[in-house]
Simulated assay, not measured.
Amino acid sequence: MKKFLGKACLTAMALTFTGEAVAADWNVSLWGKRRAFTEHVEKLAELVEQKTKGEFKLNISYGGLSKNKENLDGISIGAFEMAQFCAGYHRDKNPTITVAELPFLGVSSLVEERKISQKLYKHPAVIKDLARWNATLLMPSPMPQYNIAGIGDAPKSLDDFKGLSVRATGGIGAAMKAVGAVPTSMSASEVRQALDGGVIKAVAFAQHAHMAFGTVEKATWWTTNLNPGTVNCPVVVNTDALADLKPAHRDALLGSVDEALDHYIDNYNNKTMKKWGPTLKERGIQEVTFGDAALTGLKAKVATPAAQSWIKQNTEKGLPAQELYDFFTGMIGK
């Protein structure tokens, strides 16, 4: 595709000799289906259209524009103007933001996840990292700590994870590996088929994804408090597309981010999480809770080595890894 199709795709022009305002349509690449994970993008589209009286529209596509692991590539060539992706899907493409995916960081809430991610996205090294893809980070997709849903016999202790094939990405995968599990990285949309086919026996997801991608329809058990970490899934825009917006449209977009995130968090906390407990009970899914001593031992075994490894690997790539780690972790709990 020619970049921006001569910019007609980027800002669909609607000019007349009577001086009508310039209209713009942006294409937005998501995946799966509308769910808690995409509510901020849906709200953003609603707000932008309202504020611009229909002049600027975000056309949201769930899988019709790109594969989820290729959304950042699509942004880089201008195939679409906005997209969502998860850092753990392609760690080498966005190493700076993978600091947020390290295991057992201790982020306590969606509000905290939002706050520190937004600050991370403004760090000069992060901006430079994403600029390689002609991408500007717009907003995070805050998620709670992941936990594991699986089939078969429920684990009675952490030792029972040995040999278990688990869909787990990023730092969560490192935590699973530390207890002897076999972590497998795959996109969310591939999980149900892999579970049905026996490729994996368990899945690490946030609650909304367990419901949206059907793992609760197969699961027999769920860990309530393993809390190994979460993934960082930003929404990005093509930098050139953002620059080419007329000021009023750019202001409408950027000025709607906080309200969209407020809506996202309210929806997650007051709708999605209220469905989770009843869903487990309705399906007879056994809840597995681990003792404090076991979890403390796991954190000690995983957290520090994972952080040290991340710092070493990314320092060797020429990134200010220690600075990024200190910057991110220094905001947790404050």
Rank of each mutant, 00 (worst) to 15 (best):
residue 241 A to V: 03
residue 183 P to F: 09
residue 136 T to A: 08
residue 109 S to L: 08
residue 40 H to R: 10
residue 290 F to S: 00
residue 4 F to W: 14
residue 191 V to N: 07
residue 159 D to H: 10
residue 225 N to R: 03
residue 18 T to Y: 11
residue 3 K to F: 10
residue 189 S to G: 05
residue 170 G to F: 09
residue 124 P to E: 01
residue 177 K to Q: 11
residue 262 D to C: 02
residue 313 Q to I: 13
residue 218 K to Y: 11
residue 327 F to W: 07
residue 252 A to L: 06
residue 299 K to V: 15
residue 329 T to E: 02
residue 281 K to S: 09
residue 64 G to L: 09
residue 158 L to I: 11
residue 174 A to I: 14
residue 22 V to I: 12
residue 91 R to P: 12
residue 202 A to Y: 00
residue 233 C to M: 10
residue 106 G to E: 06
residue 289 T to H: 09
residue 220 T to F: 04
residue 168 A to F: 12
residue 10 L to K: 13
residue 80 F to A: 00
residue 228 P to D: 02
residue 204 A to G: 14
residue 56 F to Y: 12
residue 135 A to L: 05
residue 186 M to N: 09
residue 183 P to Q: 06
residue 307 A to H: 15
residue 327 F to N: 08
residue 47 L to K: 01
residue 224 T to R: 13
residue 140 P to D: 00
residue 165 S to P: 15
residue 233 C to D: 01
residue 88 G to K: 10
residue 78 G to R: 09
residue 243 A to R: 15
residue 47 L to Q: 01
residue 183 P to W: 11
residue 144 P to E: 10
residue 150 G to T: 04
residue 221 W to I: 02
residue 113 E to F: 15
residue 207 Q to M: 14
residue 192 R to P: 04
residue 130 L to V: 08
residue 36 A to D: 07
residue 253 L to I: 06
residue 186 M to T: 03
residue 154 A to K: 07
residue 258 D to V: 00
residue 290 F to V: 04
residue 158 L to M: 08
residue 13 M to N: 13
residue 44 L to M: 08
residue 277 G to R: 15
residue 26 W to H: 02
residue 224 T to A: 15
residue 282 E to A: 14
residue 70 E to T: 08
residue 12 A to T: 11
residue 77 I to F: 13
residue 73 D to H: 10
residue 329 T to F: 08
residue 107 V to W: 06
residue 127 I to P: 05
residue 107 V to F: 03
residue 121 Y to S: 08
residue 120 L to V: 02
residue 197 G to N: 15
residue 295 L to N: 06
residue 97 I to F: 04
residue 109 S to R: 10
residue 315 T to K: 09
residue 324 L to R: 02
residue 163 G to H: 06
residue 142 P to W: 02
residue 51 K to G: 01
residue 74 G to E: 04
residue 209 A to P: 05
residue 161 F to I: 08
residue 56 F to Q: 04
residue 78 G to Q: 05
residue 295 L to R: 08
residue 191 V to R: 05
residue 170 G to P: 06
residue 240 D to S: 14
residue 204 A to N: 06
residue 127 I to K: 15
residue 64 G to I: 05
residue 110 L to R: 11
residue 4 F to K: 07
residue 189 S to Q: 14
residue 158 L to A: 05
residue 282 E to S: 08
residue 248 A to N: 11
residue 84 Q to N: 13
residue 282 E to C: 02
residue 200 I to R: 01
residue 68 N to E: 11
residue 29 S to C: 09
